[in-house]
C-alpha cells in the first residue's frame, strides 16, 4: 500500500503548484467536513492531500469592483461574522441552516461548492444571488457562474489542478433583496428535503427581476428560469399566487418515495422566500 503524502501550503502559489503536480491524484482538504470522512474510511485514497486552510490570502472576505468576494478558505463562521456578507440575507439564512455550529466552524462555502451535493444549502443561495466562482490553476484563472458550475450529481466544472479561489457575489442596491428557506426532516443538523432561494428586485409592488434557485430537486442545485420569466413584470401578489402551486419543469425527481412530497412543497417554499425577500424590501432593506 502506497502511503499518502500530506501538504499544508501557506500560499496560493504553493498550493497551485502542488495541484498541478499531482493533478487528479490529489485531494484538496478545505474544511474537510465531507472529504475527511471519506479519507478516514479509505473511500478515497489519493497520492497527495493538499490542506489549504493554512493559506491566509484565501481567508479574506472583501468588497471590490461591485462584488463581495469570499475567499476559498473562509468558513461559514467567517461568513456569519462578516458585515459584508450580512448584506445578503439569503446567504446568511442558508449558512445558519447548515449542519450545526461545529460544522460551521470548519466548513466553507467553497468546499460546499466543490462537493456539489444537490441539497447543499449555501450553494442554492449563491446560485440565486448570481455568484461567480473564480477557479485558479497554475498560470491562470477562469470565472464560472454558479448556475453553470454543477454538471452532475456531486460533480462540478472544477478540473484537476484547479482550486476555488474565491466566490464573488454581485453587490445589489436597495431595490434588491434575497431570502433562503429549507424543509428538512428535523429541526437541526439535517439535509434539506427541498430548499429554495430568491434574489428579488421589485419596485412599486411589482417584480422587476428575479432569480430563483432550488436545492434537492434533482442531481444538482438548479435555477428556475421557467418561473423567473413568468414572474417578471407581475405584482408580488400575483407572483405569490402563481408560485404557490408551481411544479417547475426544472425539477428532476426520480425517487418515488419523496417525489410527490417535493412537488407539493416546492411552490410553497418558493412563495415563502419570495415573500420574505419582498418583506425585507418593503421593510427598507432590513
Amino acid at each position: 500500500m502506497k502511503e499518502t503524502l500530506y501538504f499544508g501550503p501557506k500560499t496560493l502559489a504553493e498550493a497551485l503548484a502542488l495541484l498541478d503536480k499531482y493533478r487528479d491524484k490529489a485531494v484538496i482538504v478545505n474544511g474537510g467536513t465531507d472529504i475527511v470522512e471519506k479519507l478516514a474510511h479509505r473511500a478515497v485514497d489519493p497520492e497527495a492531500i493538499v490542506y489549504i486552510q493554512g493559506i491566509p490570502e484565501l481567508k479574506t472576505i472583501k468588497e471590490e469592483a461591485g462584488f463581495v468576494s469570499i475567499g476559498g478558505t473562509a468558513t461559514y463562521k467567517d461568513v456569519l461574522a462578516s458585515p459584508l456578507c450580512g448584506k445578503f440575507a439569503g446567504l446568511i439564512q442558508s449558512v445558519r441552516e447548515i449542519g450545526s455550529a461545529p460544522i460551521r466552524v470548519v466548513g466553507t462555502p467553497a468546499g460546499n461548492i466543490g462537493t456539489a451535493v444537490p441539497a447543499a444549502d449555501c450553494n442554492v443561495a449563491l446560485m440565486a444571488l448570481g455568484a461567480r466562482i473564480v477557479l485558479a490553476k497554475l498560470g491562470g484563472e477562469r470565472v464560472v457562474e454558479t448556475k453553470d458550475m454543477f454538471v452532475a450529481y456531486c460533480k462540478t466544472q472544477l478540473e484537476p489542478g484547479e482550486l476555488i479561489k474565491e466566490i464573488r457575489i454581485p453587490v445589489t442596491d436597495a431595490g434588491t433583496a434575497s431570502a433562503f428557506a429549507k424543509l428538512a426532516k428535523r429541526k437541526a443538523q439535517d439535509i434539506a428535503q427541498v430548499s429554495a432561494s430568491v434574489r428579488l428586485t421589485a419596485e412599486g409592488g411589482v417584480c422587476k427581476d428575479i432569480a430563483i434557485a432550488l436545492g434537492a430537486v434533482g442531481p444538482t442545485a438548479v435555477r428556475v428560469p421557467s418561473l423567473e420569466k413568468a414572474l417578471v413584470g407581475k405584482s408580488i401578489d400575483a407572483c405569490l399566487a402563481e408560485v404557490k402551486k408551481a411544479v417547475p419543469p426544472e425539477l428532476r425527481l426520480r425517487n418515488p418515495r419523496n417525489k410527490q412530497y417535493k412537488e407539493a412543497v416546492v411552490g410553497v417554499l418558493i412563495g415563502r422566500v419570495l415573500k420574505a425577500a419582498y418583506e425585507e424590501l418593503a421593510g427598507g432593506g432590513k
Binding site: 500530506y6 470522512e37 478516514a40 463562521k77 470548519v106
Partner: peptide
C-alpha cells in the same frame, strides 16, 4: 465516525469541532 453525532467533540483554538472528521495533521 461520520461527523453526525458530536460525541467526539474537542475544542480547537477554542471552537467546538468534530475530531472524527478532522485530519490530525491539520
Amino acid at each position: 465516525g461520520t461527523g453526525d453525532c458530536g460525541a467526539c467533540t474537542v475544542l480547537v483554538d477554542g471552537e467546538a469541532v468534530r475530531s472524527c472528521i478532522l485530519l490530525t495533521a491539520s
